[in-house]
Nucleic acid binder design. Sequence first.
DNA 1: TCTAAGTGCGCG
DNA 2: AAAGCGCGCACTTAGA
Length: 552
Amino acid sequence: MDATGAPGSTLTLAPAELPHAVEARERAGAVRWVWSDARTWYPRLLERGVRVARAWDLRLVHALLRDARGVSDDAGLRAHIEWDAAPPEAPSTETLFDLDGGAGGAASGPPEAADAAMAEYRRQIAALDAADNASALRLLATAESAGALIAVEMQTAGLPWSVAAHERMLDDVLGVRRGGGMPERIEKLAADVRSALGDPGASLDSQPRLLRSLHRAGVLVESTSRWELARHEHPVVAPLIAYKKLMRLYSANGWAWLAEWVRDGRFRPVYVPAGVVTGRWASSGGGALQIPRALRTAVRADPGWTLVTADVAQLEPRVLAAMSRDTALAEAASGRDLYAGVVETGAVASRADAKLAMLGAMYGATTGESGRLLPRLRRTFPRAMALVDDAARIGEEGGVVSTWLGRTSPAAGESWRALQGLASDAAASGIDETRARRSARDRGRFTRNFVVQGTAAEWALAWLADLRSRLATIEPVDAEHAAPASGPAFARRPHLAFFLHDEIVVHTPVEHAEVVAEAVRESAASAGRLLFGTFPIDFPLDLRIGETAEKD
DNA sequence: TCTAAGTGCGCG
DNA sequence: AAAGCGCGCACTTAGA
């Protein structure tokens, strides 16, 4: 797995020659490509049908090591801020290196960029070798790099999306469009709202004006949000909530979204690995991580293909049990439903309470029902609760916390420190003290959640990476059964098509569906072992095989 | 006419 | 206006 090595021979290529050269080395044996970032290099390879097995993503690893506690900076890693910047334009010439003994390859831009990439790689390896938690960080670096490959692969292959099913759903829910106007059900609801308000000219899409209209009609809300409206008894409430719901579907995932984001029967979102501070992925464009569940009916496998959809039940509390070595919580988590297990301990009375309390523990609830249940959880699961409580305390004091594999939270910012300093001054006003206290608590809730959310993201990354290599061993199907819209690198093989924090969708030829399902389960078990060794914690999946990706 | 900030809601 | 985390996007208004 290690990617150490020094550059040996180099080979300068025109861009058109790169895919062939990379493919030749992939065929020759185990290679790990070292490159600035997958987004710059990998799409061009995939378009030509060239998939790479392993990579080292200098930008992602730089960001990781830059902030990681336990990494000393003897090699000067942190001074090289150019690795924090956005990727540059694609270069006009490219260089391949041999790493030591042919164990790896490196692709880079013009010679000076290639030298810079190799120097950064050496700094990273040196920093890793000297790190306190070297083996965990090395694991995270390779997992991140694999994730970067997967993100590009999923964008290239796309999620199979039926325009017809999507439009049918829009027609059913929103009604048909007439002329240049809104769909008929939205028009109807808007008319109902205006009539209930007794205000024929009421503006429904401007929050301040709608608020005033509501006040004039005697609905004394402070906001126009659904949850507050729902508390009032007034004829305008039902149609307004319905209007907002439909309008949301229309503007976020209506016909315009379809036209912009679905091509050739594929939704191709841009994934941003580690785009969230905690290490979770973000997305850019298309709202890939916010697709309404009701729209899953539009996710449709190609003819002769099917979808394997799987999500982990209660990933975050399971991860918390394992990282805190809380055997009582792990025991409650064994089997399918962690919350049912918590009820069985007697700590809380119902499944709903168990969920409320557990989420409150991980998010830092202090008041309300959730806050009131926490002491009971603390008695039953002292180790798990101590882990999140410690993380919160450290955050409140201005410190940093780390995930299981060593991703470290950002240091407290200048303004945060200034506010705390101000409040500790003897002459501080009560207002300053209150503000400082509140921002300390805010930060504590952030670090509390960081350790759990971030470690869950690491587990998911390990799951994805392991699954990817298992899928790569499955025999391709005949060309006549291919799914050409997935592109030459994926048309004949099962491949990941979607990922959302704790859920994956694999698009696969029907004949391989069972093998894929087994690979999905095995990779989940494997991810658990990779992170937590022999600690007894289950990661049970809800797994479905079917034409659509709908969930129950 | 452009940008920044506020609001509300979709996802985990 | 979420008692409690993390996001992205559409739409609006305020301000330069």
